[in-house]
Simulated scan of single mutants.
Amino acid sequence: MADTEKTAIAAHLYVSLRRVANRVIDIEWMAQNEEYARAVIKLAVEQGNDELARQALRYQALLNGEQGPARTEAAAPSADTVKKRYIGTLR
């Protein structure tokens, strides 16, 4: 499970770093090499982007053997909210 989660977070870091800093990382190498992963984490945190830093710190928690914070699923909007939002806008 930890390897799957590491790879998933590394993929998110890849996309975010490419968008924010125009940097490309190797996802598989990050999951296999702890030294490379720590360098990528440092790079991500230095960018000053909150989402990027949050993802990097989640990955670092996995490297340290900690269980990352549980992801919370957003509650689905009620049927009334969806109905109000889309009435008159879709044609």
Rank of each mutant, 00 (worst) to 15 (best):
48 G>E: 04
22 N>Y: 11
67 Q>W: 08
86 Y>A: 01
17 L>K: 03
52 L>E: 02
29 W>Q: 05
37 A>L: 04
38 R>C: 00
75 A>L: 14
22 N>V: 00
43 L>C: 04
17 L>G: 03
28 E>F: 15
27 I>W: 07
20 V>W: 08
75 A>N: 06
27 I>E: 02
88 G>K: 08
24 V>E: 08
41 I>N: 04
37 A>V: 01
69 P>M: 11
71 R>S: 04
9 I>D: 02
6 K>T: 00
38 R>L: 05
80 D>T: 04
73 E>H: 14
91 R>N: 08
27 I>R: 01
13 L>Y: 08
45 V>E: 11
36 Y>S: 01
41 I>W: 14
42 K>G: 01
81 T>Q: 13
68 G>F: 13
37 A>F: 12
89 T>A: 04
3 D>C: 03
46 E>Q: 12
63 L>F: 15
71 R>I: 03
5 E>Y: 14
87 I>P: 05
67 Q>L: 13
45 V>R: 14
37 A>S: 12
27 I>F: 06
72 T>F: 15
44 A>G: 10
19 R>P: 04
64 N>H: 11
13 L>C: 03
54 R>D: 03
68 G>D: 07
16 S>G: 03
21 A>V: 00
30 M>T: 00
43 L>E: 02
60 Q>S: 06
87 I>W: 15
76 A>G: 03
73 E>I: 07
48 G>P: 15
46 E>F: 13
11 A>M: 10
41 I>H: 09
55 Q>Y: 14
14 Y>G: 00
85 R>I: 01
52 L>D: 01
32 Q>L: 11
42 K>W: 13
91 R>H: 10
49 N>T: 00
55 Q>S: 05
47 Q>Y: 08
49 N>K: 08
68 G>V: 11
28 E>M: 09
35 E>L: 09
51 E>G: 07
58 R>S: 02
6 K>N: 05
33 N>G: 02
3 D>N: 09
64 N>Q: 15
55 Q>W: 15
45 V>K: 13
2 A>D: 13
83 K>C: 03
70 A>Q: 09
25 I>D: 00
32 Q>N: 10
46 E>S: 11
20 V>F: 14
45 V>W: 14
67 Q>N: 06
